[in-house]
C-alpha cells in the first residue's frame, strides 16, 4: 500500500516538476535601443499563419526592408485569435523600433471590437501602407445574374434568399455585406466559410450563389478563364484588370469602400520619430522594388506611397463604422 502511495506521489511530483519547467519558459527580454537606429536585427511579427496572404506579403517585404535598413529583418509568425495574439505581442513589446508588425484594418480595429479585447488602434504607431487588396463580388459562370444590377434586383425581390460566401465571420467583408442590408435594404444571407478557399469551393460546387472574396491571384485567374464572373469590386475606383466591373460606389453605395484589406507596417505606440521615419522611408523604397512588388501583387501596391497619416485615416474610418455596426 505504501508503495502505491509512493508511486502516486511520484506522479504528482513529476507533474510538479513539469509545471515548474513550463513556468520557467517565460518571455525573455527584447532588444535594446542604441545610438544610430537600427543597430541590431529587427523582429517582424506576422499575426497570421504561414502561407496565407498576410504571410506572403510580409515575407516578400522582409528581405528588402532588411537590405534598406542594413540590418536583418526576421519574420516571425504569431498566429491566433484573428490576429489578436500577434497584435498583443507587438503592443507589449518595447517601442524602440526593433519590433514591428504587418497589420490589417481587420486585426487592428475589428478584432478587438468583436472579441472585447483591451487594445485598440491607439496602441500602435502607424508607419505606412503596404498594399490595398480589394474584394470582388463574383458568381459562377452559369449564374443567372449577368451583372450586379440583376443580382441586387434579385436580392431585393427575394429577401434573404441569395447566399453570398465570405472568408470568415466578423471579417470586414462580412460587415460590409451587413451594411448593404441595413443601410440599403439589399437583404442577402452571408455564409462564412473557412477562408477564401472555402468560399471558392462553395461557389464552384454551386452551393452558394456568389462569393465576396479577396481579389487574389487564384480568383483573378478564374475570372480570366471564365469560370467566375466579377459583378462588382469594393475599391473606390475600378480595377485596372477588370475595366468593365463597376465599383460598389458606382452602383449607388457611396460609403461601401471598407471591404478592402489594407496591409500596413506598424510598431507599438510611442515609436521614436527616428525609427518611424527610417522605417517609412525604407518601406517606400521597397514598394518600388520590382521583385518585392511582383510577389505582393503589382495592382495592390498603391501608386503613390500612403504614409502614416493616410493609414491613420483609414483606421479611424474603420473604427467609426465598425463601432456603430457592432453596437446593433
Amino acid at each position: 500500500m505504501n508503495k502505491k502511495i509512493a508511486r502516486t506521489a511520484g506522479v504528482f511530483a513529476s507533474v510538479g516538476i513539469m509545471s515548474a519547467a513550463v513556468v520557467g519558459c517565460g518571455n525573455t527580454a527584447g532588444a535594446q535601443s542604441g545610438a544610430g537606429y537600427p543597430s541590431e536585427k529587427i523582429r517582424f511579427i506576422i499575426p497570421y499563419a504561414a502561407g496565407g496572404p498576410t504571410d506572403v506579403t510580409a515575407r516578400a517585404l522582409a528581405p528588402c526592408l532588411g537590405k534598406e535598413l542594413g540590418q536583418s529583418v526576421v519574420a516571425e509568425n504569431v498566429a491566433g485569435g484573428s490576429g489578436a495574439l500577434g497584435m498583443q505581442k507587438l503592443i507589449s513589446s518595447k517601442a524602440d523600433g526593433y519590433t514591428v508588425a504587418i497589420v490589417s484594418t481587420g486585426m487592428t480595429v475589428l478584432t478587438p471590437l468583436v472579441n472585447g479585447l483591451d487594445y485598440s488602434k491607439e496602441d500602435i504607431t502607424p508607419i505606412g501602407v503596404i498594399s490595398h487588396v480589394p474584394m470582388n463580388l463574383v458568381v459562377g459562370k452559369d449564374s443567372p445574374y449577368k451583372d450586379a444590377k440583376a443580382f441586387i434586383a434579385a436580392a431585393k425581390a427575394n429577401p434573404g434568399k441569395l447566399n453570398v460566401g465570405v472568408s470568415g465571420a466578423s471579417t470586414p467583408q462580412a460587415i460590409e455585406l451587413q451594411r448593404l442590408e441595413e443601410q440599403y435594404g439589399v437583404d442577402i444571407t452571408v455564409v462564412p466559410f473557412d477562408g477564401s478557399a472555402g468560399a471558392t469551393t462553395a461557389l464552384l460546387g454551386g452551393h452558394a450563389d456568389a462569393a465576396f472574396i479577396n481579389d487574389a491571384p487564384e480568383v483573378s485567374d478564374r475570372i480570366e478563364d471564365g469560370s467566375f464572373k466579377a459583378l462588382a469590386v469594393s475599391s473606390e475606383e475600378r480595377q485596372k484588370h477588370l475595366p468593365d466591373t463597376p465599383t460598389l460606389v458606382e452602383l449607388g453605395y457611396p460609403d461601401l469602400t471598407l471591404a478592402v484589406t489594407t496591409y500596413a507596417l506598424a510598431g507599438p505606440a510611442g515609436l521614436p520619430e527616428e525609427a518611424t521615419s527610417k522605417l517609412a522611408g525604407s518601406l517606400e523604397t521597397c514598394l518600388k522594388d520590382s521583385k518585392t512588388v511582383e510577389i505582393i501583387g503589382e495592382r495592390f501596391v498603391p501608386e503613390k506611397f500612403d504614409d502614416a497619416e493616410t493609414l491613420k485615416g483609414i483606421l479611424d474610418e474603420g473604427a467609426t463604422v465598425y463601432k456603430t455596426m457592432l453596437k446593433k
Partner: peptide, 25 residues
Amino acid sequence: LGIPSNVVLALLFGALLVHGITPGP
C-alpha cells in the same frame, strides 16, 4: 482546383504563390 484542403496544403499553396505560380485549373 487551387483549393488547399488542410493546413499543410495551404502552406504549399502559399509557397507556390510566392513563386508566382497560382495553383488551380
